[in-house]
Design a protein around this nucleic acid. Sequence first.
DNA 1: TGGTTATATTCCTTGACGGTTATATTGCCG
DNA 2: CGGCAATATAACCGTCAAGGAATATAACCA
Lengths: 108, 108
Amino acid sequence: MVAALAALAEPHRQQILDLLLDGPRPVGDLVAALPVSQPAVSKHLRVLRDAGLVDVRVDAQRRLYSIRPEPLRAVDEWLAPYRRLWADRLDALERHLDRTAHTEGEPS
Amino acid sequence: MVAALAALAEPHRQQILDLLLDGPRPVGDLVAALPVSQPAVSKHLRVLRDAGLVDVRVDAQRRLYSIRPEPLRAVDEWLAPYRRLWADRLDALERHLDRTAHTEGEPS
DNA sequence: TGGTTATATTCCTTGACGGTTATATTGCCG
DNA sequence: CGGCAATATAACCGTCAAGGAATATAACCA
């Protein structure tokens, strides 16, 4: 689970996963969509695969990568106890008391 | 959001958050519970605070740290599209065995 | 077979991160 | 005030990750 989070904690890898949401894609497509070199993408894919987050299928010279959601489900389950925090405890109250400058990133 | 994930992708920081699930705690408690030095814990807390994941309240010489769940909610929301992947693809079996307390899964 | 395409791997450099020790800061109490 | 307790910051070190360039590998095609 920690491994999955570590893999996700890198913007380009997140971007790759987001691209794969539309279905399997060859490496070339990902390279075209990312601002880094092909070897860099290949290495990110390796990390994602080691974390169990993607799957590869060989298609001639291409390799089609697709999402393997299991580790994400583990993350989802890890979130469970925290979900209570914004579900029934704080929520509106938190937002109200909130004095810290939060320059939050936007979801996705 | 990426920032939050990066902060979570470190076992000791995850452990700190898990400890804070039981409520606010002074740094000393965390130091006692973790296998690293006090400065190390302080630095982790700094990272967590910068990521908006914890809040500090001053109590005499102590600082009480508590969870700020917003960034976790952002992660939760980021997970949403992926949740479909294990909801409607792989897990006819899982759904069958369903032991998880997911009250928010809507019937299709 | 040779060449071209698609992807992976190697090597190297650079920068960030986590850890420790030492020191600064701040508040309490005698 | 002096000293202790709790925490933060500074300075430094070793390791690791991300990036590019170059190269290897593998499959297709002429």
